[in-house]
Design a protein around this nucleic acid. Structure first.
Lengths: 319, 319
DNA sequence: TTGTATGCGTTATCAT
DNA sequence: ATGATAACGCATACAA
């Protein structure tokens, strides 16, 4: 493997000069530049990038922490991140955590070891104080509604979204509204519950703990939702659903459970995934790809920035 | 940032000794080991991994080249790869190419620059001779049926699969069988056409170029398939479909096109994705996750290996 | 405009 | 068992 020294010898210049043409610095005569370039040609020289990293103390590598790869929500975000990464000349290192804290910490450790210039966390399990410990080693950007001085963030106002969807259903005459979530202690779940309780109080509606269905993330989780719903004496007449995946599952399996949609149960999905359009799902469109792009921008920036995105209620056939 | 030198000074030993305990080499006295470990504790020392990479000439980074992130087929493979990567202590660098050759080459370049120890290519656009040029820099493993001395590979026998599905449909009485593909010049497409023509000849069936529908990859592509099929005087009575995504779309939109399934048109999907079960799609199960795991194993191995996986025909309601 | 010398943090070699 | 020292390949302050 020819290195910068060989190159210098071959071109009859110093390594500094070679380094200069390599990094397109000014102050190198045309004659020598050509010599060096010829030497590069002849030898098929290529930098050892690890030496560059060591010397510069950075890698152009960005870590992306996310729980699942096989869920359209995160896939869309990841597409946005990766497209912007291409534009900005960054490379992505993937950390699918499945919500295991060790895998999340692997990313953090690599940040600390200077293998990563920054980390994007799409959904976290580490508590915030832990993350705050790591910002001294490099920027961390969160896909989460959190106005912190430590992290940049990109988010939609889930509380507002949820409230809006609830009011929409209320306007359509629904009084018994349920909702599905994935993790009881997830960030979104807390927000949803708060919005839900506020909504109930505003309209003087009773709170029913049975109207919150958890464990709903994938399409096939929908069966369990219907099953649980069927056990209720007074089932909800409308459901705000974790994602279009679950909403699609609910619609697909509704017949088997003898439930007419939207008559017996209205459904509002989330994300406006392709399947939502195919199945005519009423849903809330979230600009996930654009959010992914912004995540990359933020993690590259030296400033702490917080960007909020707007959502759109897409009225189709399930309400 | 404390480095190995500081550590040595603090522990009153040489850097060599520190390096030895860091890398768990033998020949270091218990006393010194403890001293060093204490120094590590006290300083919160962490290796600069880039220095390790430079010194060792390897990175424990594996590149994964794949066209799309938002398709269940590749998502499943990627999950397999990443789970095995965790076990083997490897980290994944992602190259979503969207079939743009420059992005594929970015991975190859990083292999050449020693930033990657190896590259897994799930679907390629570069011709094989180009890839062969790069194996001198590190192992390349293909998700593709190709017995080459240059690359390891992981695959299912698509020709056999396709043939088997065709025969299955033939046994069910179908004589006018069509199929969908994504890219006309994709690797799979060539294989499928070959199997198709062989099948037709064996049963002395006529070849009809209209029975091959291209551009079908995502769920929403299914509409175009139905549209084109509707223009045919003698439409096929059965369809072998690119993926369960497309198959699902076909089933979902069948009603709108006034097509009864399986009566008017039988459908066989591919991959046995979750949606296939939900919609009762007859499909061919491919062990994508297991294949992903094997991909990672192969790229880590110094041997060239070729692993074939078996598939299963899942009979459900669309044939 | 160019080159020398040094630093980056670690591992590997070799002598003791 | 331990340590000095030379790589590893490149960037850069400083001198010229």
């Amino acid at each position: 493997m020819t290195n910068i020294k060989d190159l210098a010898k071959r071109a009859g210049v110093s390594v500094t000069t070679v380094s200069r043409v390599l990094n397109q610095h000014p102050y190198v005569s045309e004659a020598k530049r050509i010599k060096v370039e010829r030497a590069i040609e002849e030898t098929g020289y290529l930098q050892n990038i690890n030496a560059v990293h060591l010397s510069k103390g950075k890698t152009n590598l960005i870590g992306v922490v996310l729980p699942f790869l096989d869920h359209p929500y995160f896939a869309q975000v990841l597409i946005g991140v990766s497209e912007q990464a291409k534009i900005k000349g960054q490379t992505l290192v993937l950390f699918p955590t499945n919500y295991e804290i060790e895998k999340e910490q692997a990313a953090l450790r690599m940040l600390r070891q200077k293998q990563l210039d920054g980390v994007i966390i799409c959904s976290r399990v580490s508590p915030l104080p832990v993350l705050e410990d790591y910002v001294q080693y490099g920027p961390i950007t969160l896909l989460e509604q959190r106005q912190s001085d430590h992290f940049s963030s990109v988010f939609v106002d889930h509380q507002a979204i949820f409230t809006r969807a609830l009011e929409y259903l209320y306007d359509q005459g629904h009084r018994d509204i349920g909702y599905t979530i994935y993790r009881r202690n997830g960030t979104h779940s807390t927000v949803r519950e708060k919005a839900y309780r506020t909504f109930l109080e505003r309209h003087r509606l009773p709170f029913n703990p049975d109207y919150c269905f958890d464990g709903a993330l994938y399409l096939e989780d929908s069966k369990a939702v219907w099953q649980k719903l069927k056990t209720l004496k007074h089932p909800p007449t409308a459901l705000l659903v974790t994602s279009d995946q679950v909403a699609a599952g609910l619609v697909i399996h509704a017949e088997a459970f003898n439930i007419a949609i939207p008559k017996a149960c209205a459904i509002i999905g989330l994300n406006d995934e392709p399947i939502a359009k195919a199945l005519n799902l009423t849903t809330i469109r979230i600009p996930l790809k654009a959010m992914g792009e912004k995540l990359l921008d933020h993690v590259l920036s030296s400033e702490r920035e917080h960007t909020s995105f707007d959502v759109t209620l897409i009225e189709r056939q399930t309400v």
